[in-house]
Nucleic acid binder design. Sequence first.
DNA 1: AAGCGTCTGTTGTTTTTACAACGAAAGGTT
DNA 2: AACCTTTCGTTGTAAAAACAACAGACGCTT
Lengths: 220, 220
Amino acid sequence: MKKYLNVLKKAELFSGIRESDIDALISCLSARPVHYEKARYVYLSGDGFEGMGIVLSGMLQIIKEDYYGNRLIIAEVGEGQLFGETFACADIKALPVSVYSATESDVLFIDYRKLISPCSAACSFHNRLIYNMLRIVAMKNIILNEKIEVMSKRSTRDKLIAYLSSEAQKAKSSRFSIPFNRQELADYLSVDRSAMSAELGRMRDEGLLKFEKNRFELLL
Amino acid sequence: MKKYLNVLKKAELFSGIRESDIDALISCLSARPVHYEKARYVYLSGDGFEGMGIVLSGMLQIIKEDYYGNRLIIAEVGEGQLFGETFACADIKALPVSVYSATESDVLFIDYRKLISPCSAACSFHNRLIYNMLRIVAMKNIILNEKIEVMSKRSTRDKLIAYLSSEAQKAKSSRFSIPFNRQELADYLSVDRSAMSAELGRMRDEGLLKFEKNRFELLL
DNA sequence: AAGCGTCTGTTGTTTTTACAACGAAAGGTT
DNA sequence: AACCTTTCGTTGTAAAAACAACAGACGCTT
């Protein structure tokens, strides 16, 4: 476990907890590490859900299959990140998604019930864990809300304006860069890439904005 | 406070807590009731956020103003329901939305810090509160994810199929009713009502489904 | 340097959606 | 019964998006 300490100490779930306390915490949470080979499933959609985990090494993918049978990658979970916490918190018994180990990976499974019930006094960091857990779930909530707000615009142009405005607001500047390339931005906005590119071009021509690669500047 | 006990005992936040314990709980959480007249703002967008609350009577609206200045009702919060919990959990200082008292209302403000830090032993229901809180936030998360999954479909038809399929799945039957009228469904899917109505008509003609009012049956 | 893959912008065509306008049905009120 | 309101479906037209196909720019590898 020692070798993953530098991953765990950066994990959001353990934020504000002293590195020296992490070891005690792990046994307090009955955390157990599991190794996965590349291209193995951690959970299959429909499976009984066994508990949340934190990625120690490698990368997991959260995968949803739609009614056509298309495999859609909903999220990627890297080192130090949690997965399954929403289902643990919401007490969901059967997973609506699959979890897939895209690379060889190590996962630390954590007992949710132990995490949320403060243990026998000894373990003072439990409060902090609960605080972190709530913050993580709530932050995800906020991010989802932002996405819905942008996606709910009817036209590609309005989606772009909504997205870019909110990025500008976050950056507190009309000049900012975005964490997406064109295809990823189109996926995020749920529009066609080429049509979006064309719309960006028109908006540039109309003097609404400037851009180069992933750097944007809003005018007006 | 007594007169609101039957509201509080049904509130999700207090689920699993004995009615007789609620009074003690309220003082333990430093909860304070506030009355609002109709058409008053509880919070204005941009305001410093003072804390979450639970609606004792009346109805609040969560309102977002977009860059055109359009007022958009994001959610309505009725008796027994929480508001602001996401921002409390995520430790957001400045509200990105306004909270508006659509009717005359009473609100019970709750100290989030006290809610998440188990108090001096005496108060055994604190664990349950934390558990409830996490479940509430996580459930919201799941609902948002469902909405995004549906909204991310490109065409009206695919949105309808995605939404109706998920409703059928929830109902565990191909016959089910939905909680929306046509306009509300169109808003939820973020499409035009009349175009959606026309698409539903075509799908019926093609033998994909049957419907009458808000009762649907999926065929095939 | 040549070859290859990826990313991006552009254009023309086809398909889909939004929009506006209207009529019919159902429910409530006076 | 007459009236009003709300809801829903239908239609035609205008606007927008998806789609397909391609070309230029860039970076990487050999």
